[in-house]
């Protein structure tokens, strides 16, 4: 019995939980990290390639939700299939992840909470901008709103609790800090994070592929731009001549 338990703990690094007759939740028993994220999305791609029954797989910080079309597949079948696929993967293979430079204007009305937040953090607004735009961020997954990127990698000097009362209309493109996270609001929405800037970049367009430029596993950094540059990029986006790199 003891031996078998040990075998199991060595066999797969995640637990398998049947959430719904047609959905299986895999949760890794470790803290989210970049290494784990790469493992999760590599595994996801392989499952999508090899299991035709799957209708969609959704990524979380340390989890995958697998949904399928057919009726109730047996847990044993899924367990053995998942094991075979997991152990056939070469996790060291280089992946096709990209890096994106997001232009952000950290000035004026675009940065409504910057002054206040800087004071609370005992930093100057300039320092906050410097630290925020120096960072390298990982796109963990997209959730909350269409095109809302969950980013990992915020400098702990910028950690600050969310607002007690969310505001009703955070402007589209707002770049904000909440808790230990930073993010970009893809649409006007209610939100409790502190707004420090705005990007003219479109995060989500349901009418144009690839809908959202970024995907899980990509990296991203912010580049400070002036209001004039902001307007220029905005015009180029309207003309269709802007290309994000």
């Amino acid at each position: 019995m003891h031996k078998k338990d040990k075998m199991n703990s060595f066999s797969l690094p995640f637990s398998i939980f049947k959430l719904h007759p047609k959905a299986l939740l895999l949760e890794w028993n470790q803290k989210p990290s970049q290494k784990l994220l790469i493992e999760i999305i590599t595994f996801k791609a392989e499952l999508e390639n090899k299991l035709k029954e799957i209708s969609q797989i959704t990524v979380g910080y340390h989890s995958l939700l697998i949904e399928w079309n057919k009726k109730n597949l047996s847990k044993d079948f899924l367990f053995s299939t998942l094991s075979i696929i997991y152990f056939s993967i070469d996790f060291k293979k280089p992946n096709s992840n990209r890096h994106w430079k997001i232009p952000v204007c950290y000035e004026g009305e675009f940065a409504q909470d910057l002054e206040w937040l800087s004071q609370k953090l005992n930093l100057s607004p300039k320092q906050v901008i410097e630290i925020h735009s120096r960072g390298l961020y990982w796109v963990c997954f997209i959730g909350f709103l269409p095109g809302f990127l969950y980013l990992d990698g915020l400098d702990s000097k910028l950690f600050f609790p969310r607002k007690n009362r969310p505001i009703l209309k955070v402007p589209r493109g707002s770049v904000a800090i909440g808790g230990n996270q930073t993010g970009i609001y893809p649409e006007i929405s209610p939100g409790g994070w502190h707004i420090i800037g705005k990007t003219p970049v479109v995060l989500f367009n349901p009418n144009k592929k690839p809908y959202c430029f970024a995907k899980s596993g990509d990296t991203l950094s912010f580049k400070a731009i002036s209001i004039i540059e902001f307007k220029n990029i905005e015009n180029k986006i309207i003309e269709g001549s802007f290309k994000l790199t």
Binding site: A23, G60, H62, S63, L65, E67
Partner: peptide, 10 residues
């Protein structure tokens, strides 16, 4: 919990 996927009915 760490943000994770949910479903209608959760």
């Amino acid at each position: 919990i760490w943000t994770a996927p949910v479903l209608p009915g959760t």
